[in-house]
Amino acid sequence: MISVQSLTKQFGTQTAVDALSFEIPAGQIVGFLGPNGAGKSTTLKMLTGMIEPTSGTATVAGCDLRTQLLEVKRRVGFVPDSGAVFESLTGLEYLEMVAALYAIPQDAALARIRQFIAFFDLSFATLTDKLLGAYSKGMRRKVVITAALLHNPPVVFFDEPLDGLDANAAVGFKTLIQTLAKEGKTIVYSSHILDVVERVCDRVIIIDKGKLLLDGRPDVLVAEHQAGTLEHLFTTITGGAELEQRAADFAKTFRP
């Protein structure tokens, strides 16, 4: 469903993503991990057609990223970590606008939106009466997730999707994406909350400084590296192993 070969992005002299290659079949949930500045968001933006790769190729949902950009965009959903929305629109106006961009008839869009409202426990009145600028962070995130899934895309990219969601909504969301994957959708899930990734994802890809470090099932990788947890494995291979000791040492400086 997603095939990436030697995908590279350079900003001036700095290489943000360095010849990244991987394949993701349909129905898989892949955790896309890396420390800050590793090139995760840049990769996701390239795979959703938001920015142009410097070199390399990729196909998403069977469409070539370079030659069939609009087709790629029709087939993907994306939840950016910024959670950006047009704050001067109501939630309903925003979702109707998104539906129109995917040519979803208005009645069908409204029916679909109602299903999402019910799922996320939102009130229809809130969606119609309040502008997005006045929404709480969690409510706004629910609208952004709805906007990404409204057109029923076969491939969905999530960048920190749980940011701002309350515990109940987060649980519901995790179940939702697992079920979507069982239905055949490909999910790429980028997050820093590693215990969630470990529980939800079938596979993890870890990158650092734009390069691929590890790729495999989380339990297998953890066992291979005798790390105990994915979090421990992550900190070990991304150079954060001494973090605990450093944190303990630093805490001592607070002593009166």
Partner: peptide
Amino acid sequence: QTLRHLFLTLFLRGRSARGLQK
């Protein structure tokens, strides 16, 4: 048409509309 409608709405409401009830 959607985009024209969107940008006209955003423009007319402007920043001052943020946080208001519709």
